[in-house]
Design a protein around this nucleic acid. Sequence first.
DNA 1: CAGAAATCCTATTGACGCGGTATGATATGC
DNA 2: GCATATCATACCGCGTCAATAGGATTTCTG
Lengths: 146, 146
Amino acid sequence: MMISTRGRYALRIMADVARHEGDAPVSVREIALRQEISGKYMEQIISVLCRAGLLKSVRGAQGGYHLARPCGEITVGMILRATEGDLAPVECVADGAHPCERIGDCPSHAVFSKVYAAINQVIDGVFLRDLIDDAAPVPPLPEKKG
Amino acid sequence: MMISTRGRYALRIMADVARHEGDAPVSVREIALRQEISGKYMEQIISVLCRAGLLKSVRGAQGGYHLARPCGEITVGMILRATEGDLAPVECVADGAHPCERIGDCPSHAVFSKVYAAINQVIDGVFLRDLIDDAAPVPPLPEKKG
DNA sequence: CAGAAATCCTATTGACGCGGTATGATATGC
DNA sequence: GCATATCATACCGCGTCAATAGGATTTCTG
């Protein structure tokens, strides 16, 4: 299990916001209710997603979050990299990596590079749009407000 | 960096043993000298590789390890799974996994399944034989014995 | 048979990240 | 001005990682 809850929650959060996009921003409390994620923990994850330019916030009462870009332009790769960091199987094959000192005598480098490429190909090929299309219809928000 | 030193060391250990296969078994001390890995730590990793049926041990003086099977029959996947566990990106897509309770409403499941499949395809398609063919020629063992 | 050389086994340690909680500051709609 | 939000830190318990340590067991060799 190499993707932690941070990345998994981030996907669910982004999908939730995408599904409920509208005039009103989506608040942490709404998402927490629907997704059953600790609100406080979610704040931290959302903060990362904002800084990564994937969400934008509306402060104050009736505030919340919007997608910063349309869901057809946001990939799973962007979301996971923002929250998990680069998904390289080992450090020395990552994008901006300093090559390890054993390269040249490293039998495994080629394999890890292939793994890295395979992972990226998948996560960069799936968009947020695809996630919400595939998924089940919008679950009802518990009408606690009325 | 989702593959820890255990898995990476395991690959180097297996490659080292494969390269130096012969009548005499390969000892921890030899490997430690060539690969610059802590001998004591290596013992633990090797112990796992033995239990996984990838290495077999020869006990006592002049003992050491042999490949349990020819290097054309050992895949990178076998080695990594033995030392790292299943390389599933999340638990719920692993082979014998109990499906998570949110399946059906989980937008990410399909993506993670694809990632999982892509990883397995790579690591199950590369054999120990390939590793030692690709790599640099056998490095000399420091002649400390003479 | 004694001892050296090796594997085997288990316990311990320090550092670090993960998952979450707590507290408070700041901004804003009503 | 107050409730409702986001924003920013600090903190904590826990498990894993990467070793280290110490000793028990097996076996070749002289």
